[in-house]
Simulated assay, not measured.
Amino acid sequence: MFGLANPERFMRFTAPLPPVLWGVSAVLLAVGTWLSFAAPGDYQQGDTVRIMFVHVPAATLGLAAYAALGVSSFFALVFRHSLADAAARAAALPGAAFTALALVTGGLWGQPMWGTWWVWDARLTSVLVLFLFYLGYMALRSSIDDEQKAGRAAAVLGLVGLINLPIVKFSVDWWNTLHQPASLLRAGGTSLDPVFLAPLLTMMAAYGALFGAVWLTTIRAEIVRRRVQTLRARLALEA
């Protein structure tokens, strides 16, 4: 892992990965979408159950992306490594997009099931806080002109936001909430019927591959941007 922390090695090692991940995510999204529409309606929820195949993967990737942002922020803050800083920065926008998608689809699912688009439920509120952490991270980086100072300030905020991840995950267990408890990863195994489990897992794999593709592509672009910026500064000094 620390060997790949060298930007040169990282660029060489990851060069073939983004096209593969983009292709895998496209195939999995197509298969997952077909399985989602092929699955029967739920006996209670009817066709609205299909929102699950978008909502659950989006919420999961929103959490996973922030975990990647937080861990990268730790290495950037402690070891002052530019690649870790680039990785944290690259995780922010796709993570925010997944979290926003989870909030929107949660409202679309909640209205027919609960009779309301939004409640200040512990799970919903903690996911909204997660989204605000994403926005705060990106806004903080953009508000400081000095990239090093911006990276350090944003890394501190990224680490603070990690506190919210277990709250999101265990909120339905710690408090009496309207949101249903976990049905996929829980003690005693999943409660999902196989006709729903297959499309859900396929879509989760598709979202994971999509995030990997976006993340790696953005990290590589960020490395190139910083190289160009350094080269321009050097040429300006020489001139």
Rank of each mutant, 00 (worst) to 15 (best):
F2I: 15
G3T: 09
L4V: 14
L4D: 13
A5G: 14
N6P: 02
P7G: 03
R9E: 11
R12S: 14
A15C: 13
A15E: 15
P16E: 03
W22I: 10
V24P: 09
S25E: 03
S25Q: 06
A26D: 05
A26F: 11
A30F: 00
V31M: 01
W34P: 07
S36G: 03
A38I: 01
D47R: 13
D47A: 13
T48Q: 11
T48K: 13
R50H: 03
R50C: 00
R50N: 04
V56P: 06
G62F: 02
Y66K: 00
Y66G: 06
A68C: 11
V71S: 06
S72P: 04
S73H: 09
S73R: 10
F75H: 06
V78K: 13
H81G: 08
A84Q: 13
D85G: 15
A88I: 11
A91I: 04
P94M: 15
G95I: 03
A96H: 02
A97H: 09
F98V: 07
F98H: 09
T99R: 10
L101N: 14
A102C: 11
A102D: 02
V104A: 10
V104N: 07
V104I: 09
T105I: 08
G107T: 08
L108T: 02
W109C: 06
G110H: 04
M113V: 07
W114G: 06
W114C: 05
W118I: 02
W120N: 06
W120G: 00
D121W: 08
L124F: 05
T125K: 06
S126P: 00
L130S: 01
L130G: 01
F131C: 12
L132M: 04
F133C: 05
L135T: 03
L135F: 00
G136Y: 05
Y137P: 08
R141T: 07
S142E: 13
I144P: 04
I144H: 06
D146H: 02
Q148M: 09
G151P: 02
R152H: 11
A153E: 15
A155S: 12
L157C: 00
G158D: 02
L159I: 00
K169P: 01
V172W: 02
W175Q: 06
P181M: 14
A182E: 08
S183H: 15
L184C: 11
L184S: 09
R186L: 10
R186M: 04
R186S: 12
G189D: 03
T190Q: 02
L192R: 03
D193V: 10
P194Q: 12
V195P: 07
L200H: 00
T202D: 01
T202P: 00
T202I: 01
T202S: 00
M203T: 07
A205E: 11
A209Q: 04
W215R: 04
T217M: 09
E222W: 15
V224R: 12
Q229E: 14
T230P: 05
R232F: 08
A233H: 03
R234D: 12
A236D: 02
L237H: 13
E238G: 11
A239P: 07
A239L: 12
